[in-house]
Design a protein around this nucleic acid. Structure first.
Lengths: 214, 214
DNA sequence: GCAATAATAAAACGAACGTTCAATTAATTC
DNA sequence: GAATTAATTGAACGTTCGTTTTATTATTGC
């Protein structure tokens, strides 16, 4: 046999991406075979090579688009002239919303870096660093204006990102907490962590979301 | 050839464990081949099977002993009748010290869970849950006595553990910060995160370690 | 120093891997 | 409706994988 009825390149490529994200997140990149991926898509292994020249290029594409999407989401959300507390709040909301929506893709981007060639690894890390830099800038501004009280900006930024991204490890959409509740609690923890001053407009905003649970 | 001069079972097994932890941490469990591991140890692949019946059993042994070691370290360190702030402080110190000392083993225990069979996965997760339970108990006691102000104990515990364990992702022993400085900053962030009251003996204790950097 | 045992080497097993190639059919273009 | 292009199959390639088997040598106990 050969070309099958109703076959469509775009649909097949989308199906490959989706199946690959799920399989790699569940089993790991090395553990997923191209034959297994093909079976999940409902196609022969050779067909995959029409869309991605190698297995690693497929992984790289998934990671790159995930990181680019994260940066773009932040650029659309970022408040222009807001004060540090509002900007930090927006950063946290965007980060958590984006990662909860894309749990599997995040898992892939965080866990499979070692399977990339050095050049591709550098590419992904550059995207990640640019995104983290935005957080450090917010923390620095907040420290300068006195809105935050931070010991070490770089270390605090890493701690915050680890804490927020960790959501995907344990969060399940159908369990005890809703996304809104989780986000509110993480916002509250973040503001405490950076020693945000408890006065001004932002403070009321935070508390209104933070006291949902005891 | 066969048995080599100076060969010794105990030394070989220790060399296998150490090489395996490093290789798996660097490349991942699936990406490490038994032949590569054997070459690192300076032995033929078949010799590995004298010490570990399968590759997965080797992985499981490494993980189990790491998790057991973490629990034992905490049991030795845990202050008996101390107040919640002191106990939380001890927990953070122990966690960070243990993980920084065993960066590679921690990486393995955190990243390779999906390569375990269901029964072995359950075993490891039980050890991990028991350890995390200790933190939740401290947070609960602190909330009850009013020492802490926490929105959601389970969520805060997960956030703290993600934050602390994240140290191994970026910390390099020979760089900008010493272990003591990192620990102090994480202690400070932890106490803020749980809303620790800024009065009593513990408060002085925290600040004395936390203000090393700006 | 001789038997027993511990530790390893060397070779081989079948299975699975990523990838390539030629053939074949569906959809599109004119 | 013929020619062209897009999409896929099925078989095969050489390599590597985890593991087993058998033989061989070093060490230990008596």
């Amino acid at each position: 046999m050969a070309r099958t009825t109703g076959s469509d390149g775009e649909r097949t490529e989308a199906a490959i991406r989706e199946a690959a994200v799920n399989l790699i997140a569940r089993q790991g990149y090395e553990a997923m075979s191209m034959r297994q991926l093909a079976a999940e898509v409902g196609v022969q292994a050779a067909a995959l090579y029409r869309y991605f020249p190698t297995k690693e290029e497929l992984l790289f594409t998934l990671m790159r688009e995930h990181m680019e999407g994260l940066g773009e989401a932040w650029e659309k959300t970022r408040p222009a002239g807001a004060d540090p507390s509002q900007r930090l709040s927006a950063y946290v909301r965007n980060h958590i919303a984006f990662h909860i929506e894309r749990r599997h893709a995040t898992h892939v981007s965080n866990m499979e870096l070692r399977s990339l060639s050095p050049e591709r690894l550098t590419h992904i890390l550059r995207l990640r660093t640019a995104y983290e830099k935005e957080l450090r800038a917010i923390l620095r501004d907040g420290t300068d204006t006195g809105a935050f009280s931070i010991d070490d900006i770089g270390l605090t930024a890493m701690a915050l990102i680890q804490m927020m991204t960790g959501v995907i490890v344990w969060f399940r959409p159908d369990e005890r907490l809703s996304i809104a509740e989780v986000t509110a609690t993480y916002l509250s923890m973040t503001m405490r962590l950076v020693g945000a001053r408890h006065d001004g407009a932002e403070e009321r905003h935070v508390h209104e979301h933070a006291q949902l649970r005891a």
